[in-house]
Design a protein around this nucleic acid. Sequence first.
DNA 1: AGAGCACTGATCC
DNA 2: GGATCAGTGCTCT
Length: 108
Amino acid sequence: MKEKVSEFAEKVYSNLKKVPKGKVTTYRELAKSINSKSYQAIGQVLRRNPFAPIVPCHRVVKSNGQIGGFMGETNGAAVAKKINLLKSEGIFVKDNCVVDFENKLFKF
DNA sequence: AGAGCACTGATCC
DNA sequence: GGATCAGTGCTCT
């Protein structure tokens, strides 16, 4: 796979890295901040994530506070790990939903 | 060129 | 409240 990414992906990663620890963001806010309406494209790019350890893709959740997916799995061990990671950052997740999501939500 | 996707909003029941 | 349809832009095959 290529480590090169398009401008779109670059913006996504750039904005995502701006999210402070202990906070989460949504695909919607992220897409809007990069002037794009394609939320799926965000997921697509993050899924292929060429900067896996560099970009905190686990800090991105759905607009309703649900986890969404992780490493290509909408629900599974990968998601469980994502939840565990968030928990380490002070973000608790219950039933695939972020606890006190609105408070943890980071807005650009 | 075509299909798929880690989504969302609107619509329908 | 849940299920389904449509729209959307980008990546992969």
